[in-house]
Each structure stands twice: as structure tokens, then as C-alpha cells.
Design a protein around this nucleic acid. Structure first.
Lengths: 341, 341
DNA sequence: TGGGTTTATTGAAACGGTTCAATAACCCAT
DNA sequence: ATGGGTTATTGAACCGTTTCAATAAACCCA
């Protein structure tokens, strides 16, 4: 295994000079530069990351902790599809900046916090991304106290004094409500994500606001709390359809959840997009592929990944200690929604 | 930042002893152990990964390179959904063994090879996973020459003398052909993945074998080369339906591809599962959610992830230098297939 | 009691880079 | 020639661990 020392001696210079070449080539004279370059190429030399980061205190790595529960062997969580797209964005922006991405798995939330502690403690990363922010999230103060750069995907309830990227769920849902109202719908139901998540609060607020802005009667029975899952969509849609006055349109927490609702509607012999409209959330790639294709609120996951990393790097570089970005979801109209009367 | 030295002095022992405690507690006397443990907990000490791996030459990290093309902003590749599931398996098994996962992105195949070189050269990982094996894959000899432990997901054409985990695509497709034949289908088409991929060869062989074993007439026009994408499935299904004697069943390269085919069939006013049967491949989580739900060959991605990592760790530990595993896909029968006549 | 073994602990030398003060070399103006 | 100011290069200390030969302590048994 070649070391900087071998490169130095073979090129007839000191290791300091080679180090300079490696970190800031313009510090070394052009002709020396050529010699070193030749030797490095010849020996196919790469400076060892461990040695480098031991002294320089930076790893050129950013970290991410992912919760993977061993029990649900099969991930039907749409967040997962979204996660992949997000990951693609993160990954490519990370690469763009000459970094690598370190992913750790944790079994549950308690383990997750420990994993963050370990990643930071062992000094394996220069910064972190935090996802799935809860209404009050213990990870935020923890990382802040550790003074390690991080960016959150989402805003917590209070104390939003940390770097984040978020999607304006309220505006999105309000947009969808207006759209449905314009189509003539008066009875619009909403299957929300779990209350514990921050995004739930925002979206719910958008729902109420949307109803108010369009002179629609709020109706508690039309708001059901569920999960992001298909199963949840299916069950809760059935519940809604069992109401004495069932809704004519259903907003859901995710595309997969919407798919479940569509399944339920279909099972009752109703036609989606005609008798009942369904709106998803996320715009996962399959939303356009299924039949009927899904009207949905598009979250630009890849873009979000980009933004997250750009924010993180600007924190790491000290360029901007508190970047905060909010993106708006777009309403993508497809076949699962239609006029009412 | 606390170091091993501070722990040592505060516990009144030498750093060597602390190191022993860290790496093999039973080397240190029980009572000393208690003292050290207390101090470590008190200071919330974590040994620095960089220092550790500089000396010990192991990183407790395994790597993975992912190609992310910047142009196709939207990943419709089902391989991607599968990839996520695979990743979950890999991730959790990696965590199980006290390792972390390092993911790098590359823009294309040339960059990918360079990225492998960098990961290995800079010594950032103890082992690697290689995915999407081509018929002859340059990464295999490269890594072999570097003498770094790795495991491939898939078998290359010749020279299969490396550790791998693979799915028996031939058996899977043959199973599907038999199933369709038993349902009465005589004209079975197959939309294959790109020829460059190794899995294509295997599956194609399974297709021919399946036909032969069920006394069915092979028909060149029934085999079309496409991609894994939905678009590909849609286009090629149309092509098949345009044939003077169109097939009554279509095998596809992936579930997403099957979804495309179903869309095409639907557009022509035909009923999937009645007039035409469609079989997917992968069994992504959405296969059971769409309507009609998809008959498909299930690849146990999470399990594959497990196997990959178990293999990798047994290579790393030297326990088994050449683990080779082949898993069989299961036929999952749902609504997209049905009797013919 | 003493020699031999086992068990615990220590101290110092690595590991392969970065960093920075010190030096050397060079150029130009006086 | 001399001095001042750049620009290039050097050498050694240092980063925080592991490793291992050497030592010390404890134990065992004849």
C-alpha cells in the first residue's frame, strides 16, 4: 500500500510538499507539481481517509440514520418510495461536493438517538440529516448541544431555530381543497397522517383553511386519523363510505394511502373519478402508472434532497449557519378526480 | 473532545488498558473494568473511528456505489423500488454486525469504477457490494485484483469465481411459463430486460426451457427486448397486440413493466386477467395494491440484502472466502392472470 | 520456600496523513 | 553588493488509537 512518504521520496520532495499538492496544488511550483502528479498516477496513490481525518478533523462524510423495524418485513410505506427519491437527491449532491454518505440503521427511535450519538461521538461524519421530524423531536436539541452541523427535513412544533428544509403541506392541502371545491365537491373528507408527526398539523391546518376559504362546512366525521399505509387508506375509506352522508371526495396522507382508498371504493362498485374523487400526496412515480392515475400533491423529493445537502454544506462551511427553506407542493391533476354533479 | 488518554488518566490506568477494555474487555481485571466503564460512561466517551482505523486497518464500514444519472430526474425504474427493499436488508444486517454502510453516487459506469477505486484506495471500507452485474463486468476483476472483500448481487457470464448471491431467474420464468401453460395459454410472449444484463440471459433461457417443457411452439416475434420501465412495457405490449396472432399471455421483466403492459391492454379495451394475462417480476410492494393486482415472480429483496451482507461478512472475517448463494423466486398468483378458453 | 505459569498492566512505537514555523531560493530595487 | 519581499520547500510535531514486547503481580504446586 503506497503512502505519502513513498510518493515523496520517489518524487524527490518532502512529504509536506506532497501534502500541499494534495490539498492545494497551487502552493507547489508547476514543475514539482508535474513530478508529484506523475508519481501519484504511476503508483495509483490515494491518501488514506483515516490518517487524513485523524489530523484534519474532517471526514468528508455526511450521515443519515434510518429506522428499519425488523418486524414489518415488507415495506409498504410510501414514505419509503419517497425516501428513495430523496436519497437519490441527497446522494448525488453529496457526491457533487466530494463527500460520501454514511447510512446507519436503527431498530427504533431509542436506538436511533444512540446511533446519532455514536456517529457524532466516533467522529465519523461532518454533518447529519434528520428526517421525519416529530412535533417535539429529541434529536434536534441533542445535535444542537453536540454542535455538529445538521439539517432537518421538516419543522418541529416550537423552537424552529435550526436549519431545515420543509414542504408547505398546509398550502398544498388548501390548494387541493380549492380544486375539489371548484369541481363542485361540497363534502370533502381527509385521511390524515398520525398526529404525532409535525407535517400532520400543518396539513390539517391547510385543510381547515381550505374549507373556510371556499365556504365549505367543516365536519368532524370527515377527518380520520390514519397512517401512510395502503391498509389504512382502505379501512378508513370504508369507514367514510359507511357514513350516512358519505363524502364525495377524499384527501389522503399519501399516494399509497390513496391507492388503498381507491381499492375500497372500487370494492363497493363505485367509480373513482366519477362518483368519488381521490387525491393523493407525494406523487410517487407509480401515481401516473396505475389506473385510474392519481391526482396528487407532488413533493419534489429529489429537489428536496438537493436542498437538504446544499443547506448542510453551507452550515458545514460556515457560510450560512441557519438556512431555512420551504418548498411548495404542486397539484398534479390526473384521473382520480372529477366533477361533482 | 474526550480521548482515550483522558479516560486512562481519570481511571488511573494506562491507555493500553483502556484500549484492551474497548476491544476485548475480558483482558482486563473485573475491578479495573468497572472503573474504566464508569469513566467512559461519565465522559460519554466514544473512541474515534479515524484513529482506530488508522492503526487497526479496519473501518467497520462496508461500501456500495450507486449510479444516479442526473438526467432522468424521476426514477421510474422498479429496480429502484426493489433497491430500497434490498437496501433495507443490507442496512439492517450491516447494523446487526456493528458496521455502517457507506454509499457513494456515480454519474455513470465509468465514474462508478473510479468511485470503487477511490473507496478502496482511500481505505474507507472493509468490503463492498456490487450490484447490477453485467455479462462481463469490469468491476469484478478490478476488485479481485485489489484484494478487497466483496460480494456481487448476480452472476457474470463466465468466470463465476467470486462470491455472489443471485436469484434463479431461469427457474422463475420457467415456473411462470408452466403456470400459464396449465391455464391453457399457448401463445406466451416475453418482454425481456436489456441483453447486456446477465439476468436477461438466465431468464431467457428459462423462457425457452419453459416453452419446451410444456410442448409450446417458440415464436421469435413473441420475444421483445425492452427495459425495466413502464414505458417500455406499454410500447412493447402494443407491438405484441399488433401482431397478426397476438399472444394471450405476456411475461415481463419487472412489475413496473407489467404495469405498462396492463395500461396498453386496457387502452385497447381488453380485460387483463380475462382476455390477456400479464405476469410481472419482482413483487414490489405495489404489485398487490394496484387493480388488477399483479401475478408476479417474487424476489425476496430484503432477504437478498441479508444474504449479501452475511456473505460479505464471512468473506471479511475469512470464515468463507467464496460464499455463493442462489435463491429461487416464488410465483405469486393474483388477478392479472387467468384461464384461457 | 522457590521456581514456573498465568494473568494484568504498562510504555513506547507505530499508523499515514496535516500543519506550521523555519528555512531556502529567488527576484528586484536600491 | 545589500536588503526586503515573495514564493517553495522542509522537518518535526501531532492527531487518537492499537499493538506488542516487557514487566509486574498473583497464583500454584512440589
Amino acid at each position: 500500500m503506497t503512502t505519502i512518504r513513498e510518493i515523496a521520496t520517489s518524487a524527490g520532495v518532502s512529504i509536506g510538499t506532497v501534502s500541499n499538492y494534495l490539498n492545494d496544488p497551487k502552493l507547489v511550483a508547476p514543475e514539482t507539481r508535474k513530478k508529484i502528479e506523475a508519481k501519484i498516477r504511476e503508483a495509483n496513490y490515494h491518501p488514506k481517509a483515516a490518517a487524513r481525518s485523524l489530523k484534519s478533523r474532517q471526514t468528508k462524510r455526511v450521515g443519515l440514520v434510518r429506522i428499519i423495524s425488523p418486524e414489518d418485513y415488507r415495506s409498504t410505506d410510501p414514505g419509503d418510495n419517497a425516501f428513495l427519491e430523496l436519497l437519490a437527491g441527497i446522494n448525488s449532491m453529496v457526491a457533487e461536493n466530494g463527500y460520501d454518505l454514511l447510512i446507519s440503521a436503527a431498530k427504533n427511535e431509542a436506538e436511533e438517538l444512540k446511533t446519532y450519538a455514536r456517529l457524532v461521538g466516533t467522529g465519523q461524519v461532518d454533518g447529519l440529516v434528520v428526517m421525519g421530524i416529530g412535533r417535539t423531536d429529541p434529536r434536534l436539541p441533542f445535535l444542537q448541544e453536540k454542535k455538529i452541523p445538521f439539517v432537518a427535513y421538516g419543522r418541529a412544533e416550537q423552537d424552529t431555530n435550526y436549519p431545515y428544509v420543509d414542504v408547505d403541506g398546509a398550502a398544498g392541502i388548501a390548494k387541493a381543497v380549492k380544486y375539489l371545491s371548484d369541481l363542485g365537491h361540497r363534502r370533502i373528507a381527509y385521511i390524515t397522517p398520525p398526529q404525532s408527526l409535525m407535517c400532520t398539523q400543518q396539513r390539517l391546518e391547510g385543510y381547515w383553511r381550505g374549507l373556510a376559504e371556499n365556504q365549505l362546512q367543516p365536519e368532524d366525521a370527515y377527518v380520520l386519523e390514519g397512517a401512510f399505509s395502503q391498509r389504512s387508506g382502505q379501512t378508513l375509506a370504508h369507514k367514510l363510505l359507511d357514513l350516512p352522508e358519505p363524502p364525495t371526495a377524499i384527501l389522503t396522507a399519501s399516494d399509497v394511502c390513496a391507492l388503498g382508498a381507491i381499492r375500497a371504493i372500487h370494492d363497493r362498485g363505485l367509480v373513482v373519478g366519477k362518483q368519488i374523487s381521490v387525491v393523493g400526496f407525494d406523487d410517487i412515480s407509480l401515481a401516473g402508472m396505475v389506473h385510474p392515475s392519481l391526482t396528487t400533491l407532488s413533493q419534489p423529493f429529489r429537489r428536496i434532497g438537493f436542498e437538504l445537502m446544499q443547506s448542510l454544506f453551507s452550515v458545514i462551511s460556515g457560510e450560512n449557519a441557519m438556512p431555512q427553506t420551504i418548498l411548495s407542493p404542486e397539484l398534479v391533476v390526473r384521473q382520480s378526480t372529477g366533477k361533482w354533479n
